[in-house]
Amino acid sequence: MSGKDKPIDDARRNIDRLVNQHTEALYSYALMRVGKPDVAEDMVQDALLAALQSWQSFAGDSSERTWLIGILSHKILDFFRRNSRREDVDDETWRTEYFNKSRHWKDRMLSWKADPETLAEDVDFRRVLQDCLRELSRVMAQAFVMREIEGCSSEEVCKHLEISQTNLWVRLHRARLQLRRCLELNWFS
């Protein structure tokens, strides 16, 4: 029977199963990267829709979840590119935010006593990290997420977001300062 069905009918039968099985994992994957719940939900929906529309191309040689994450990851990168702010970011405000007049640190800087491997799996820490990432302005966050979570090279990030290397370095530097402070205040102290 199924051979006579239009592919779309075949896909349609899978909608509810796919949505029920994968939404949570896809959503938390997306939320960590895009920060905003409504955007993350849109990404998941787009990815599932795209998956259903290309249902025949799912070879079945990888797990369904892996296949879906692959599609989702493309959707997220597309979103970053579409929303990339190409203007230069101000390179000076961070100085007064993080350093005093004699150009020493304003922050206390604690020793972080934890094992990164274990911490990465801690649900409470993940929540704090997610909130801290969300605090980053979009200009910084996209570059930072691509570089640090996706593990893209500097060159790849610049090309994708159409920004210069100097611009990327400024964004990453500021993102790191801000994320460090946020994690220290909300988790390590």
Binding site: Y29, R65, E121, V123, R127
Partner: peptide, 8 residues
């Protein structure tokens, strides 16, 4: 994201 998803 498998194990943490439902708790998040």
């Amino acid at each position: 994201y498998l194990e943490t998803a439902s708790s998040l």
